[in-house]
């Protein structure tokens, strides 16, 4: 607990919380409202990063490195996910000449 650098304390934890909540909310709203797959995808990334930010902040305030280690993993996975996700979107675009998610309602029985 005592090794926490002072510089971090200059911004209180609440601020991180508010900020990442806002970021997350923007992401959610983006996912819900936008129809362009790439924008939705970016909004998902936004949500992901909101969580990452929160984890890093809490990890620092609690002097527990576990959180930051998790974040590294998440970033690695996210990178992989972006690769796959974008590839899928590209494939979709090639097939239907659009990235509008409303046009992709095949996921039903």
């Amino acid at each position: 607990m005592n090794q926490m650098p002072d510089v971090i304390r200059t911004i209180p934890l609440e601020f991180y919380l508010y900020f990442s909540t806002a970021l997350f909310a923007i992401g959610v709203i983006g996912v819900l409202t936008r129809r362009n797959a790439i924008v939705i995808f970016m909004c998902v990334e936004l949500m992901l990063n909101a969580v990452n930010l929160l984890m890093v902040a809490l990890s620092s305030y609690r002097s527990d490195p576990n959180g930051q280690i998790f974040v590294f993993f998440i970033m690695a996975v996210a990178a992989a996910e972006v690769t796959v996700g974008l590839a899928i979107i590209v494939m979709i675009y090639r097939n239907i000449r659009s990235t509008d998610v409303q046009l992709m309602n095949y996921l039903k029985w």
Partner: peptide, 17 residues
């Protein structure tokens, strides 16, 4: 129940949120 499975991803996400 299948009526809810419209296939529109946006709707699923909305329900989830």
């Amino acid at each position: 129940l299948r009526q809810t499975q419209s296939g529109v991803t946006g709707f699923y996400v909305f329900v989830m949120v």
